[in-house]
């Protein structure tokens, strides 16, 4: 348990760095990938709620101190996503298969985009958009792209993970 903590911290910092330097500058599909969210759901499924909350807390905190939005918008968005995804996982999915992982990432992407945009719109003067985000075409286009790319990332990472390690074969059902 205690050996895992530094490894998880390292992974969180790495994902945070990759998101900022490698993904965010790209326009379009690659820039739509929310790596933090993909791994967050992965950890939530594998390690449970406590680890998921820990990841949400750490990622949210790092994004909050990096960006200039009001402190807490990322923290709350990530934590709410973890809680809602956990609720869905426990209430509606009987196993931890690829399908449940895919549905969860789609739901988490929608929740995250809504929460974050909502909080920024109401709390930040220098908000991203002048108009309310729900009436903007670009919001729905970027959400659709994000859904597609995150789902693809989940699909690939699921099979890569199962190929590299069979530790979780009993937990992750392939079909």
């Amino acid at each position: 348990m205690y050996i895992k903590i530094p490894l998880h911290i390292l992974a969180i910092i790495l994902i945070f760095g990759l998101q900022l330097s490698l993904l965010n500058p790209w326009q379009g599909w690659l820039g739509s990938l929310n790596l933090g969210l993909v791994f967050l759901i992965f950890v939530l499924e594998l390690n449970g709620l406590a680890w998921g909350l820990g990841w949400g807390l750490s990622l949210g905190f790092l994004f909050d101190i990096f960006y200039f939005q009001p402190f807490g918008v990322f923290l709350f968005s990530f934590l709410l996503v973890v809680l809602l995804s956990h609720f869905l996982l426990i209430k509606f999915f009987t196993n931890r298969s690829l399908y449940s992982y895919l549905v969860l990432i789609l739901a988490a992407t929608v929740f995250f985009n809504f929460f974050l945009r909502f909080l920024i719109y109401f709390l930040d003067f220098y908000s991203l958009d002048k108009d309310f985000f729900l009436i903007l075409d670009k919001f729905w286009i970027s959400l659709a792209q994000s859904l597609a790319v995150n789902a693809l990332a989940v699909f690939v990472s699921f099979y890569v993970f199962n190929f590299l390690s069979n530790r979780f074969d009993a937990v992750f059902l392939k079909k």
């Binding site: 820039g31 990322f74 974050l116």
Partner: peptide, 18 residues
Amino acid sequence: VISQGFLVNPEEETPYII
């Protein structure tokens, strides 16, 4: 420049640069 773009609007032109 450390970063630009934002986590939830990749289609939009760069709003901020850090």
